[in-house]
Amino acid sequence: MEHTIGIKTLADLKRIQEEVRTRISLRDKAENPESLVQVKVAMATCGIASGAKEVMEFFALELDKRGIDAVVTQTGCMGYCFAEPTVEITLPGREPMVFGYVNPKKADEIIEQYIKNGELVDGIIPQNYNTIES
C-alpha cells in the first residue's frame, strides 16, 4: 500500500494524480484496448451484508495491479441471495458467468483461472438456462 499517509488536501491528491497519469500512459501503449473484462458485483442488501464491498475493492485493486484492463461495477440483486456475494464476469466475446460465495480468496482464484485463462472454477451459478413455461 503506497500513499497511505500525508494526504490531507486536494493539492496532495492532484500531485498523486499526476504520477498515476504518467504510469497509465506507459501501460496503455502496451495493451490491447479491446480486451476489456467486465466485473459486476451484486450489491443489494444481501450482497452488502455478506461482504460484497471487500470483494469489489479486491477486484478493482487487483485487476489493475495484475495489468488486466477491466471495468468493475455494481449491480443489484440477481435473486441468488443464498449465494452472496455473487459476481458476474463477462470476458470479451463470451457469455456472462455468475460466481457465488465469492470472498477475496475466491476472487483471486477467479482472476487467475477464469479471467486470465478462461478455466472454470467452482461456485458457478447456472444463470443462463431456459425454462419451459407451462
Binding site: M1, E2, H3, T4, I5, I7, K8, T9, L10, D12, L13, K14, I16, Q17, V20, R21, R23, I24, E57, A60, L61, L63, D64, V72
Partner: peptide, 25 residues
Amino acid sequence: ALREQGIDLQHPQMLIPVKSYIREN
C-alpha cells in the same frame, strides 16, 4: 469539485489515495 481539479475518481490507482484523503480528514 474533485473532478474539476482533474482527479480521476474512476481510476483504480486513485482508490487508495482518495480513501486516505477522506480518512485523514
